[in-house]
């Protein structure tokens, strides 16, 4: 079964499955223990190393299982974890399991341009105003018309000493907002990179200006970024290309890492994101097989009632026109051949002396004949006329 087409072959919106986009991705930690080595952590010894890779590895038999930051002894106590996802994903949730008492202040950021710029997704703090200058999140989600970065309670310490940071995109969005119909929400959930800034350890009291009285380190595992590979409704899976980059396996005449544009010949109407109800597939230009390229013309698209705006370029086989649907000057349509036939257009072959021009009737192939001349190509004298010696008046009335 093809998720992107129905049983009859008609295109339909399709999306990749929900995955942990962070799984196996390299995590960049601003601080990791073991350099220089200590009794508990040695970056050069796999049995005693706590690298950031443990945050996104599949787990299994790895021992140890938690990433540890270096000992933090002075402010600022920020430690940043950055996960490049490789391409755009549409986020559903982000979670991080702490292996020790969770921090009381965490910022969650996203990038949509592979780490060049960052925007907040949410904050987690017991002191939202003090730490981030924000009000605590309302219980029923954001008050505004769109999603926004809210400040949620800090991750709660569990009886085992750890804790879980859990962020759901849904919690930041007003109820009733639909991904298919809301470009704002589509933008909100899109991320190429995720960054978690651990800002304040739990043991340091309640003010951000509290100096570190005792050495502290952050410790965490199982960083999950739940989301779908962003393909704009035009692919059901993502693959690695020949350079090892993650890309959508685009359908519906689309291309690009996110299926974000129409393929070169598929520009009969503008690109659109697919929805659950409408595939909005890119349509191939109608060129009767005589052109390999086309361009989109918005004016023609509007005039056609938003049905077709493609204009064929470089029509071959002596064809011409927006759809290569008629013959270029000096050629006429062969009625015995289909419009898509390579030999659908025949040369007029107007007689160099008998015809008054080189352009024949597009439909019948009749050349314009001089007085007294007849025939499709004007190559004979009409009845009652005979050939003269003058190329200007090749046929004259028979005496």
């Amino acid at each position: 079964a093809d998720p992107c087409h129905d049983e009859g072959g008609a295109p339909r919106g399709c999306v990749p499955g929900l995955v942990n986009a962070a799984l196996g991705r390299e995590v960049l930690a601003s601080s990791t223990c073991g350099r220089p080595p200590t009794r508990a952590c040695d970056a050069s010894d796999p049995r005693r190393a706590h690298p950031a890779a443990l945050l996104t590895s599949a787990g299994g038999t790895a021992n140890p299982v938690c990433w540890h930051s270096d000992w933090l002894t002075q402010v600022p106590l920020n430690v940043t974890l950055t996960v490049p996802l490789g391409k755009a994903f549409e986020l559903v949730f982000v979670s991080l399991r702490f292996c020790s008492t969770p921090p009381t202040s965490v910022a969650l950021l996203k990038s949509q341009d592979h780490g060049r710029s960052w925007a907040p997704l949410g904050f987690f703090s017991s002191h939202c105003g003090l730490d981030y200058g924000r009000q605590p999140a309302p219980a029923d989600g954001p008050a505004g018309p769109g999603p926004e970065a809210l400040c949620f309670p800090e991750p709660q310490a569990q009886p085992d000493g750890g804790g879980l940071l859990a962020f759901s995109v849904q919690d930041s969005s007003p109820p009733g907002l639909d991904l298919d119909s809301s470009p704002v929400l589509q933008d909100w959930v899109t991320a190429t990179d995720i960054r978690i800034v651990l800002t304040r350890p739990a043991m340091l009291g309640d003010t951000r200006d509290t100096p570190a009285m005792v050495p502290y380190s952050y410790s965490a595992t199982e960083l999950q970024v739940g989301g779908r590979c962003k393909c704009n409704g035009h692919s059901s899976r993502c693959l690695l290309d020949t350079q090892g980059h993650l890309i959508c396996d685009c359908r519906h005449g689309t291309e690009g890492p996110d299926c974000g544009r129409c393929k070169p010949f598929y520009c009969d109407r503008p690109w659109q994101r697919a929805t659950a109800r409408e595939a909005h597939a890119c349509l191939a230009c109608s060129c009767n097989g005589h052109a390999r390229r086309c361009r989109f013309n918005m004016e023609l698209y509007r005039l056609s009632g938003r049905r077709s705006g493609g204009v064929c370029l470089n029509c071959r086989h002596n064809t011409a026109g927006r759809h290569c649907h008629y013959c270029r000057e000096g050629f006429y349509r062969d009625p015995g051949r289909a419009p898509s036939d390579r030999r659908a257009c025949r040369a007029c072959d107007c007689h160099p002396v008998g015809a008054a021009g080189k352009t024949c009737n597009q439909t019948t192939g009749q050349c314009p004949c001089k007085d007294g001349v007849t025939g499709l190509t004007c190559n004979r004298c009409a009845p009652g006329f005979q050939q003269s010696r003058s190329p200007v008046a090749p046929c004259v009335k028979t005496p």
Partner: peptide, 23 residues
């Protein structure tokens, strides 16, 4: 009545050299 095709050899191009086709 089917008339014969125009015979190019019969034309006199003396005064119309510039119109003479390349045939």
């Amino acid at each position: 009545e089917v008339m014969p095709t125009l015979d190019m050899a019969l034309f006199d191009w003396t005064d119309y050299e510039d119109l003479k086709p390349d045939v």
